[in-house]
């Protein structure tokens, strides 16, 4: 008993002040990209998930971007330390003119229902476990998701929505649909990670469905491979209108 208390005192308070104050990411962290649009240095060989779009003006699809280093050889891109990237509509993921329209809040009625308590059911539909590990990390003492009234529950019947990872494999298609149907209305769906948005590195495999929104409607897209826990948290808080604009 005393040892537990002693350890507790020693461990101290570890939860981030977030959303207050600035979060500092290391120099090499790959957050929201910035593109040099004047450069003509394009080598599609390194753009293996078709993230770089050359139509009209050069743009990048954040839903397909794996936030890897190799892509810098494909197009003139650098990464910033900005973790905020979640958007509400798929077309907003197309990153043009270095501007990103971040996720907007739910409509008033749904916000009233979910605003103070949002219960989510996580479904892994073919992810590599990277995104799931980061979602799980949200529950640890550093990020402490439950202080925002958001929790993960064991059954879709207890949930207000789904958080889905993975490209949706052929073998998980039915399970995902059934889980979605088991959630009571009104419900929301959050797609986390490049796989869940577009298929990610598995884009084009005949064993996967290239993303969640081919099967069920999605309300929030969180890009990344995997997204940092704060990127996911930022998206959730924007959805619930708990962040300053």
């Amino acid at each position: 008993m005393w040892r537990i208390i002693k350890a507790r005192i020693k461990q101290g308070y570890r939860t981030l002040k977030y959303p207050q104050g600035e979060v500092v990411f290391p120099e090499r962290f790959r957050g929201k990209p910035a593109i040099n649009f004047d450069s003509k240095n394009i080598d599609k060989k390194f753009d293996t998930t078709d993230a770089v779009i050359l139509k009209d003006a050069l743009s990048v699809d954040l839903g397909k971007l794996l936030f890897n280093e190799d892509i810098k050889k494909a197009c003139p891109l650098v990464y910033s330390q900005d973790h905020r990237m979640a958007v509400s509509k798929k077309e907003d993921l197309i990153f043009k003119n270095n501007e990103l329209k971040l996720a907007s809040a739910l409509v008033e009625k749904t916000k009233r229902i979910f605003g103070r308590s949002l219960k989510l059911r996580e479904v892994c539909a073919g992810s590599c476990n990277g995104c799931d590990s980061e979602i799980q990390a949200l529950n640890n003492v550093v990020f402490d998701l439950s202080r925002f009234g958001i929790e993960f529950v064991a059954s879709p019947r207890h949930a207000d929505g789904l958080m889905v990872t993975g490209p949706v494999t052929r073998n998980m298609e039915l399970a995902l649909k059934k889980t979605y149907e088991a959630v009571a209305d009104p419900k929301i769906v959050i797609a986390v990670g490049a796989c869940a948005i577009s298929g990610g590195p598995f884009y084009g495999s005949k064993e996967v469905r290239n993303g969640v929104d081919h099967l069920i409607p999605v309300d929030l897209y969180v890009p990344g491979c995997p997204p940092h826990p704060l990127t996911i948290l930022d998206g959730l808080l924007r959805l619930l209108d708990k962040l300053e604009k």
């Binding site: 060989k45 390194f46 293996t48 073919g126 494999t169 052929r170 598995f202 495999s205 996967v208």
Partner: peptide, 17 residues
Amino acid sequence: YQHRGIEKMMEEGPMER
């Protein structure tokens, strides 16, 4: 349930991927 066909993709796709 998690089968994504990685081995086939490694053989058929480019090395960059």
